[in-house]
């Protein structure tokens, strides 16, 4: 049943660009990109319980490494893959020390790392410094460029979602969820918590950096205070919460809701944009704390348990 809907949705999004204008294609592309970021935050925070507030550093690394490598005349795909490889290496090197920290401390340490990295990028020559850097221009008509990135981000969103779905439902996924549930208990049950955390962060860094590389190429120009902006992560967290943290479709749904709301309903009131985002967040936290998907699955589970208790009572009565 679910699978049917997902296939239908994928087909619809595949043929959709033929029927809508460039403006809507651009909005959908942004939604797909945010869904990827939010999915990565969900893997780390929703499933493992480690909130990587400074995770945008891998977005920045992806964007900058891709740009630098493409200036060295590498084709985009090769540059992007090498860039994501470098993000993985960085996540592993930083992961071992920083993932020892728990809760607040981990979140704050990643913010610090992101800030420090951004300042380095602003101050060295190879990145173009604070002024930013450009990507090679794509020699295609604008319409085709739009749909190129539309399909690229759509594919990335689907791959990321499926990958994380299989990861969290595998044996390794149980290790990830055990860490969120009780890290000490997980360790004493034979789970190598340190390695699990680092590998999970590396997976999140991989998809985030690919999104960063694509984003840079899409924008064709990047600056440090843009691609290392924590706003990407706070938005992704809000999307995760709205859709449902620790659910597989939550981040995708959340990305659709938040981006659609901020694009359409308030595009006429730009000056209230931030306040509206803030108020939506507060409302969500208070009224649907499990997020859309979380609330639905909880209802279903409660109904199941209620039914099983009822049938047991009925059996006892007989």
């Amino acid at each position: 049943m679910n699978i049917v809907w997902i296939v239908v949705a994928i087909i619809i999004f595949t043929i959709l660009p033929n029927f809508i204008s460039g403006y809507y294609i651009r909005i959908l592309t942004a939604i797909f990109m945010y869904a990827v970021l939010s999915q990565c935050i969900n893997l780390m925070s929703g499933y493992m319980g480690y909130l990587p507030f400074g995770h945008v550093m891998f977005f920045g690394i992806g964007a900058y490494m891709t740009a630098i490598l493409m200036r060295g005349n590498l084709p985009f795909i090769v540059a992007m893959l090498l860039a994501s490889l470098s993000a993985i290496v960085v996540s592993i090197i930083l992961g071992f020390p920083v993932l020892r920290l728990r809760g607040h401390y981990f979140a704050i340490a990643t913010i610090g790392m992101n800030g420090a990295l951004m300042t380095v990028v602003q101050n060295i020559d190879i990145t173009g410094g604070a002024r930013g850097t450009t990507f090679p221009i794509i020699m295609l008509p604008p319409g085709q460029v739009y749909s190129y990135f539309y399909y690229a981000f759509l594919a990335l969103m689907i791959i990321t979602t499926f990958a994380i779905y299989f990861i969290v439902n595998s044996r390794f996924g149980f290790a990830i969820r055990s860490i969120k549930a009780n890290e000490d208990a997980a360790n004493s049950m034979g789970i190598n918590t340190t390695n699990t955390k680092v590998v999970t962060w590396a997976i999140a860094a991989l998809f985030t950096s690919i999104a960063g590389g694509l984003y840079g190429y899409w924008m064709s120009f990047i600056a440090p205070d843009e691609v290392f902006d924590l706003m990407f992560i706070t938005n992704s967290i809000i999307m995760m919460l709205i859709g449902g943290a620790g659910t597989i479709l939550g981040p995708v749904i959340g990305a659709f809701i938040v981006e659609t709301v901020s694009e359409f309903a308030w595009s006429g009131f730009m000056e209230y944009h931030l306040a509206v985002l803030g108020i939506i967040t507060i409302i969500i936290v208070f009224f649907v704390p499990g997020g859309v998907i979380g609330t639905i699955t909880e209802k279903i589970r409660d109904r199941k348990i209620a039914a099983s208790i009822k049938s047991e009572v009925a059996a006892n009565d007989r």
Binding site: R177, N182, A185, G190
Partner: peptide
């Protein structure tokens, strides 16, 4: 007690059998 919060009773026990001695059962 240190239950794994947010999981069912069965899943808690499952984690034990997935890891545990010899890091042993690979197949869910």
């Amino acid at each position: 007690v240190k239950p794994l919060q947010g999981m069912t009773v069965e899943e808690n026990v499952l984690v034990g059998s997935l890891y545990g001695r010899g890091n042993r059962i690979n197949d869910l």
